[in-house]
């Protein structure tokens, strides 16, 4: 079976973002960009399925500007076989991304879509669930364990309060949580090889999806800053402050 892995280009998770002074968004000029960490986990899981002989082919899809191809090549260096880049100037909203991915699912008929649970820029946590709904596939979100057996997949999910295990019939959508696996690092020869792997480029028009969003961002501001705190010398002083100054314990 084919495994489809959507990957998003985002700001590197180590970078502290700054809001632009005109309040139109965050300043990404010269910022280090990377593959969304949850997408890296998705790529790793798909590649492991291929190594186990369960997946026949791992296809990465990315939607956004030309620069997304950098992260697609990364995914190919990690073991993905080919890429589909849906090129557009902006990063569409999750619903539009899901609609585009649904078209790709229609064309490629993957047995499994493994997708990050959340993009660390929008923090939406929506796309996988939307894709599942649009394609009528069952979903296993926030997965910390994935076990493909025959025509179904068992997914252990990280939920508030503990863990839940579901069995989904294939094809299905799985969204990755942090503890699903630890992604490998790409090796130099694989980085070289990845440059020659097939990468198809298409447009949103070709796929017939209107990517205009019905959400408009009116402004983006920095979060309120916390007033500077104080250092205490010892536990006794800490407790005195908490009792008498902050009054948060009795």
């Amino acid at each position: 079976m084919k495994v489809l892995v959507p990957v998003k280009r985002v700001i590197d998770y180590n970078v502290k973002v700054r809001v632009k002074s005109d309040q139109t968004g965050v300043d990404l000029t010269n910022a280090k960009m990377a593959m969304n960490p949850f997408c890296e986990i998705a790529v790793e899981e798909a590649v492991r399925l291929k190594e186990q002989g369960i997946a026949s082919e791992v296809i990465v899809v990315s939607i956004g500007p030309k620069a997304c191809q950098e992260q697609m090549r990364n995914a190919m260096a990690l073991g993905a076989d080919r890429g589909i880049h849906i090129e557009c100037n902006e990063f569409p909203e999750s619903l539009q991304v899901a609609k585009l991915l649904a078209k790709v699912v229609e064309q490629e008929s993957p047995g499994l879509v493994i997708i990050g649970k959340q993009a660390i820029d929008s923090d939406n946590n929506q796309t996988g669930q939307m894709l599942a709904a649009l394609t009528d596939m069952p979903q296993g979100t926030f997965a910390s364990k994935v076990n493909v057996a025959g025509q179904s997949v068992q997914v252990t999910r990280e939920i508030d309060g503990g863990l839940q295990t579901l069995t989904l019939s294939l094809p299905a959508v799985v969204t990755t949580d942090l503890r699903l696996n630890e992604p490998r690092f790409a090796k130099l020869p694989d980085i070289m090889k990845a440059k020659r792997k097939p990468l198809a480029v298409m447009t949103t028009e070709e796929l017939g999806v209107d990517i205009t969003s019905r959400i408009s961002t009116l402004k983006v501001t920095p979060p309120p800053v916390r007033a500077a705190g104080v250092m205490v010398e010892n536990v006794a002083e800490l407790l005195t402050k908490l009792r008498n100054e902050a009054k948060v314990i009795s």
Partner: peptide
């Protein structure tokens, strides 16, 4: 919560609205 995050995007997609 993990409950709301799990099903709500499906509601939005099926209604063809953003979440």
């Amino acid at each position: 919560t993990t409950t709301g995050k799990n099903f709500m995007p499906r509601v939005a997609a099926l209604l063809d609205v953003a979440q």
